[in-house]
Design a binder for these strands. Structure first.
Length: 418
RNA sequence: GUGGGUGUAGCUCAGCUGGUUAGAGCACCUGGUUGUGGCCCAGGAGGCCGUGGGUUCAAGUCCCAUCACUCACCCCA
């Protein structure tokens, strides 16, 4: 009989950790609100075809990482491996573009990819992100990036690097693809097997290589910037100028090609020095053709996705306690139980976080528990208190104790400093 | 899918070149005289030493296999 544990690459968020997630989520929602982004929630699964068309058949995500199945009705379904395609689908389906020329959306959600887990990579993981539809202008690029940076600094992440690039318009990409092929043809024999495969399917991705020899070859190769159209160039320069104006530091990364097919022009990535090999905390870019690809009216869009597990990893373990209890009621003897419950309920109804013993433990054990729970006050009720109608209220930090009439307890507790 | 590392108490780990009832710290529980927490002291509970085989008089320790976890490659958040 073997115990059934979590699926590889998934994890429980235990009570001692959940407050960290809550804090992160709260910050995200606050910042989103401040920047005018509204939450959108989409189903955990979608038609497989949505991802195949949206992300690209040749991408790793679609070709080998999706959790897909055929349901009893014969439909091909998939647990969402990323959120841009579902959000775009929703945007089109509900004609959000028709209701407002600009739509700024955000999400916090769980995603699924069947990869080999490692530090900062899980099969079920969480991302928050934004998608802004409707503007083709650099201002929105700059706002999206600024929001990401503001959010990270707000939660106290340091050691971040913003890497910025533009992979240009579709024409530019086409030209650049050819330029890369032309440049690499004489070096073809020196390339690795994966790079040779990419040579045909997606030569831009060869730029992602980490093999020193290939990096060396590429150093003399053409840059994307050589293939930019005038408009691409202007757009990129304006994005840079706006970031400069906001005092946001960035690094030009002309080799930065994101793995998803839908990107156009601006792409960016934010990495952290606090992580392992998987150091990208946030990645995003512009996808001006995607809405149309998925069957909507041509609509420019830009967004990013940030990995929450990686953020929490980079933040490290803080020693902040998650205790919220304020009062612990110590009851002594069988006779006081109804009074303890009544009192606890009254306090709780008056917004006082209250705890009491449900194990019928000794007074000493209850006091120890109160101490461990980190409450400020303990209320002691035994037979004597019941008889006199006065409970003992003890300040656990000072040890001071005073008698308070039972019917005045709630008011008294509310008047105390916490 | 490929490679490396690690599996001993709830957690972090000791256990030397194979040798008798497998240890520590933290956490947990109970006490330290009647109904008062923390600190201290005493005691207690908790281990198929991942699993299966093998070598040996003898295996937590050596060998093989297997599983799990983990890190890395690929790629990505």
């Amino acid at each position: 009989m073997t115990f059934i544990r979590t699926i590889k690459g998934t994890q429980d968020i235990l009570p001692g950790q959940s407050h960290r997630w809550q804090a992160l989520e709260t910050t995200i929602r606050n910042i989103m609100d401040r920047y005018g982004y509204k939450e959108i929630r989409t189903p955990v699964f979608e038609r497989t075809e949505l991802f195949a068309r949206g992300i690209g058949e040749e991408t790793d995500i679609v070709s080998k990482e999706m959790y897909s199945w055929t349901d009893q009705g014969g439909e091909n379904l998939t647990l969402k491996p990323e959120l841009t395609a579902p959000v775009v689908r929703s945007f089109i389906q509900h004609n959000l573009g028709g209701q407002s020329p600009i739509n700024k959306l955000y999400y916090i959600d769980a995603l699924f990819r069947r990869e080999r887990p490692q530090k900062g990579r899980y099969r079920q993981f969480h991302q928050f992100g934004i998608e802004a539809f409707g503007s083709e202008h650099p201002e929105i690029d700059a706002e999206v990036i600024a929001l990401a940076m503001a959010l990270f600094s707000n939660i106290g992440l340091t050691g971040l690097t913003l890497k910025l690039n533009s992979i240009g318009s579709p024409e530019c990409r086409r030209n650049y693809r050819n330029a890369i092929r032309d440049f690499l043809t004489p070096h073809f024999d020196e390339l690795s097997e994966t790079s040779r495969n990419r040579f045909e399917k997606n030569p831009l991705r060869i730029l992602d290589t980490k093999i020193p020899h290939e990096i060396e070859i590429l150093n003399d190769g053409p840059n994307v910037s050589d293939s930019w159209t005038e408009e691409d160039k202007t757009h990129f320069n304006e994005v840079c100028a706006l970031l400069d104006a906001m005092g946001i530091q960035y690094e030009l990364a002309l080799r930065l090609v994101r793995g998803l097919d839908y990107y156009t022009r601006t792409t960016f990535e934010i990495t952290s020095t606090a992580l392992g090999a998987q150091d990208a905390i946030c990645g995003g870019g512009r996808y001006d053709g995607l809405v149309e690809t998925l069957g909507g009216k041509p609509t420019p869009g830009i967004g990013f996705a940030a990995g929450m597990e990686r953020i929490l990893l980079a933040l490290g373990e803080e020693s902040s306690s998650s205790s919220t209890n304020q009062v612990y009621i110590v009851g002594l003897g069988d006779a006081v139980r109804p009074t303890v419950l009544e009192l606890a309920e009254n306090l709780r109804r008056n917004n006082v976080a209250t705890e009491f013993d449900t194990l019928r433990r000794s007074m000493k054990a209850q006091m120890r528990e109160a101490n461990k729970a980190g409450v400020k006050y303990a209320i002691l009720i035994g037979d004597q208190e019941l008889a006199s109608g006065q409970a003992e209220v003890k300040d656990l930090s000072t040890g001071d104790q005073q008698k308070i009439a039972l019917d005045a307890l709630v008011a008294h507790i509310n008047s105390l400093p916490f």
